[in-house]
């Protein structure tokens, strides 16, 4: 049995130790907000937080997450109130939307370490693939979210 805490809820799982976290989330816990795009850590659609750090869950065995805190898009906020979610809605960012959970989770980790990211910071952190090409509004929305977060904290 593996003990896994996802979005604050503890789960006792009968999963194989080397099963990637992505498939535990999707196929065992039915948390389908985290997406499968490539399976080889190339596209970032599967990005979740492990103890606050962004990871590509398609290549992280569930055993490596055991006893640690996993946060998925479903746990980012209870009501789409995270500054990134608000900014994403304000700037109408999502098109097909499939990559967006991973993009938002990657951006959320960026804002935690860099509350006022520069363009270079955004370029360096945001390496997820978006085939709809929403990069330009995404960049604007990340900066807007940083502003919103500062407004809340000040």
């Amino acid at each position: 049995m593996i003990t896994l805490t996802v979005n604050g809820t503890r789960h006792e799982l009968d999963a194989e130790a080397n099963m990637p976290l992505l498939w535990v989330l999707r196929d065992i816990l039915d948390l389908t907000g985290t997406k499968f795009g490539c399976g080889v850590a190339q596209c970032g659609a599967c990005t979740v937080h492990l103890d606050g750090e962004p990871i590509r869950s398609c290549v992280i065995p569930v055993s490596a997450a055991a006893g640690r805190e996993v946060t998925t898009i479903e746990g980012l906020s209870p009501d789409r109130s995270h500054p990134l979610q608000q900014a994403w809605i304000e700037y109408d960012v999502a098109q097909c939307g499939y990559c967006q959970s991973g993009q938002i989770m990657t951006a959320a980790a960026l804002l935690r370490t860099k509350p006022a990211p520069t363009d270079a910071d955004i370029d360096e952190a945001m390496t997820n693939i978006c085939r709809c090409g929403t990069y330009q509004p995404m960049r604007t929305a990340i900066k807007r979210a940083a502003e919103l977060a500062r407004e809340v904290s000040s």
Partner: peptide
């Protein structure tokens, strides 16, 4: 459909 696409609730085929 944007709100459903920022919190993981939008249902794709998969």
């Amino acid at each position: 459909d944007v709100p459903a696409k920022v919190d993981g609730s939008a249902i794709y085929g998969i």
